[in-house]
Amino acid sequence: MIRILLSSLALTFVATAATAQVGPPTSQRPCAENRALVVKDGAVVLDTGPSTYARFVNSAAKCLVDQFPEPAWVPSSNNPQCFIGYRCRDSSDEF
């Protein structure tokens, strides 16, 4: 019984931590604030629209070995095409 309770508590904590990371969409923050999140954390998942999320990085060092950084732009409150950093793309991805 204690084991089930501890497991449930741990699962609740993980779910709460993941939920706490979700902020307002990029379109509701200024461009500089969106960019600062990526620069500060190095790699971050941001809400880019209704039910869409994307991972952005500040350098190729945050990508996997077989990936390369591709410049990324998102809508922000003051710029419809805000350069936010990079997205990691697989070398096999089609464009």
Score class of each variant (00 low, 15 high):
R3Y: 10
R3G: 04
I4C: 07
L5G: 11
L9V: 14
A10Q: 05
L11C: 11
A15N: 06
A18G: 03
T19M: 12
Q21S: 00
V22R: 14
G23R: 08
P24E: 09
P24L: 06
P25Q: 12
P25V: 11
T26P: 08
T26A: 06
S27P: 02
Q28N: 13
P30Y: 04
P30L: 04
A32I: 02
A32K: 02
N34S: 13
V44N: 00
V44L: 01
V44P: 02
V45A: 01
L46T: 01
P50R: 08
S51G: 08
T52Y: 03
Y53C: 07
R55L: 02
V57N: 00
N58C: 09
A61L: 02
C63T: 01
L64M: 13
L64G: 14
L64C: 08
V65Y: 15
E70H: 05
P71G: 00
A72Q: 09
V74Q: 03
S77N: 08
N79D: 15
N79V: 08
P80D: 09
Q81L: 14
Q81M: 12
C82V: 10
F83T: 05
F83L: 09
I84A: 02
I84K: 01
G85C: 10
Y86W: 06
D90M: 07
D93L: 04
D93F: 08
E94S: 12
F95C: 05
F95D: 12
